[in-house]
């Protein structure tokens, strides 16, 4: 069973091709890296997989459901039910505490459970910082809040866009360790990055260049 199938996906803005005929699959519980320089189309691909954009042609099957046919409203539902998103820019709500940021994801998903939200923060080592506002947290801590938020609703797929892009080395390894933990527990993970170091953590790396798949690297070999 594949969590994600991308079939012949193209995306063009007018005559400009962002993605051309992409094919790839992610098996359940697998970790995939999408790597490429800026402008290679990796962000576009990430947005399409993350239900934030639609391809011009081709189909994306997420957890057995073709998401290319859905309306934006339905995509919102799929996104909050199946995907945990982690961003380079953290994207925390500035006026809510760390705990409330995690609870917010619960709120839009289903029900708010403070205990569970605290557990999630404990997992990322931020139990003591639950009452802090994002601006009172360091970059690494903010990213860990994001991870706690991404995994709170038990998503089928964790989608991370440059998760370590704004972090120093120490925090980078902390975050990658967390992703490893999640992977070992069976989560499917897609990490979009331009860094070969980060990409290496995955089982497979897909290298994008000019909107096309240039290379597929099996990191386990």
């Amino acid at each position: 069973m594949n969590i994600l199938e991308v079939n012949n996906v193209s995306k063009n803005y007018g005559s400009l091709y962002a993605l051309a005929d992409i094919n790839m699959t992610v098996g359940d519980g697998k970790w995939l890296s999408i790597m490429g320089p800026s402008g290679s189309g990796k962000s576009t691909l990430m947005n399409i997989i993350g239900c934030m954009d639609k391809p011009t042609s081709g189909s994306v099957i997420l957890d057995g459901q073709d998401i290319t046919q859905l309306s934006l409203t339905d995509l919102t539902v799929i996104r909050r039910d199946k995907i945990g998103l982690i961003f380079q820019q953290f994207h925390l709500v500035p006026y809510l505490t760390a705990l409330e940021n995690v609870m917010l994801a619960q709120y839009y998903h289903s029900m708010v459970d403070e205990k569970e939200a605290l557990n999630a923060l404990e997992r990322v080592g931020l139990h003591a910082r639950a009452k802090h506002l994002p601006r009172q947290l360091s970059g690494g801590e903010q990213q860990r809040v994001c991870i706690a938020r991404a995994l709170i609703n038990y998503p089928k797929l964790i989608l991370a866009d440059e998760p370590t892009g704004n972090l120093d080395e120490a925090n980078e390894s902390l975050v990658m360790n967390l992703l490893h933990q999640l992977h070992q527990e069976g989560s499917s993970i897609i990490v979009v990055t331009h860094s070969p170091e980060v990409a290496k953590h995955a089982e497979t790396t897909v290298v994008l260049e000019h909107g096309k798949i240039a290379q597929i690297i099996d990191n386990l070999k």
């Binding site: 409203t73 919102t76 996104r79 909050r80 998103l85 709500v93 917010l104 994801a105």
Partner: peptide
């Protein structure tokens, strides 16, 4: 930007 975060987290427009 702020509303975008909420949107990504799954808030509907009417919310």
């Amino acid at each position: 930007r702020e509303v975008g975060i909420l949107r990504i987290l799954g808030a509907s427009r009417s919310m």
